[in-house]
């Protein structure tokens, strides 16, 4: 197991290297001059030229790449052109905000999705099954921005139950320690603030979690239906086991591997794909961080942001691969 983990980690090196290469060159292929963008339309040609030299933009592109790669290996993600500050220091609060949001979204998606899928399979062709699967179909097809806006309109404006934007109350900001506010408020022992943070997480969490929830529900259902027809389920019933345990113990563990794969992929997609949700809910996450950098042609930030998201995606799927063994003893490493 340890051996396998190490081997898998080793095999990530070329993947990460390839990622850095792609990210670097794709961004250079986009037209537009960052020096001109920073200095504005009215700046003199000489000023722009001297800034280009300062930023290293005049070097051959291969040299630029190796500079970039060398910096990466020392943990230096570069300096933002726009704010002149270190990206490695800047990026964490944004990343933490997105991770917290993605965590809540996946929690909702997995809990509701898996259970809806199980019950749909258990009571196949019942009214519950039909309703759940139609709702899931609507969930997959619903645009996130529309769902987010509807949530804000209904739960914030009409009912005034939940805050519509942001991570925290403006009047009572959270004192950041880890920048994961759920943790920070608990560390500070401020329960009121904790619940405020939870409230802020619900609407964007649901908006972001709806599509994965629907996909997980449908995947769980079809996987469970297959397992529940198998011989060992009949054996479990022949032992006199109650149906609840036959379903949740004997069937679910067997049916979970394809569901786990979907959960892993969706978690990865969520981290990068949260831009829409983050924009609608003014969530200071990594998606927005990258999006704003694109507007300013802040190459280093775009590169690093995408690289960080991609790296997390790769690691989430590594964890999923390792988890397979926990669910199925037949999987050998």
């Amino acid at each position: 197991m340890l051996n396998y983990t190490l081997r898998r980690l080793g095999s990530l090196i070329p993947v990460l290297f390839g990622m850095s290469l792609i990210v670097f060159f794709i961004i250079r292929a986009i037209p537009g001059d960052p020096a001109r963008t920073i200095l504005g339309e009215k700046a003199s040609e000489a000023a722009v030229e001297s800034l280009r030299a300062d930023l290293g933009l005049n070097d051959p592109i291969v040299i630029q790449y190796f500079h970039y790669l060398g910096d990466l290996l020392t943990g230096d993600l570069g300096t933002s052109i726009r704010t002149s500050s270190e990206i490695s220091g800047d990026i964490w609060p944004y990343l933490a905000a997105t991770m917290e949001l993605a965590f809540v979204a996946m929690l909702i998606a997995v809990f509701v999705g898996v259970n809806a899928g199980i019950l749909s399979a258990w009571f196949q062709n019942s009214i519950f099954d039909y309703t759940a699967m139609i709702v899931a179909l609507i969930g997959v097809s619903m645009p996130v921005f529309w769902l987010g806006l509807m949530e804000q309109w209904f739960f914030s404006l009409e009912l005034n139950w939940l805050p519509s934007i942001g991570r925290e109350s403006i009047r009572d900001p959270v004192e950041p320690i880890t920048h994961l506010y759920l943790l920070d408020t608990l560390i500070n022992g401020n329960l009121d603030q904790f619940f405020t943070v939870v409230k802020h997480l619900i609407l964007p969490g649901v908006a972001l979690g709806t599509i994965p929830m629907a996909i997980i529900a449908r995947m769980t259902r079809s996987s469970m239906l297959e397992v529940m027809r198998s011989d060992y389920i009949r054996t479990a019933r022949a032992k006199g086991q109650r149906m609840l345990l036959v379903v949740y113990k004997h069937s679910l563990k067997n049916a979970f591997i394809p569901v786990l794969t979907v959960i892993g992929l969706q978690t990865g997609l969520l981290l990068g794909g949260a831009i829409l949700t983050e924009t609608i809910f003014s969530w200071p996450g990594i998606g927005r961080y990258v999006y704003e950098s694109i507007q300013y042609r802040d190459y280093p930030v775009i590169q690093s942001g995408i690289l960080v998201i991609a790296t997390i995606f790769v690691f989430v799927n590594l964890i999923v691969d390792l988890l397979y063994a926990a669910f199925d003893p037949r999987i050998k490493y």
Binding site: D231, Y232, T235, K253, N254, F327, D328
Partner: peptide, 8 residues
């Protein structure tokens, strides 16, 4: 071959 639960 298939009557025992493979994961327990």
């Amino acid at each position: 071959m298939t009557s025992l639960n493979p994961v327990y």
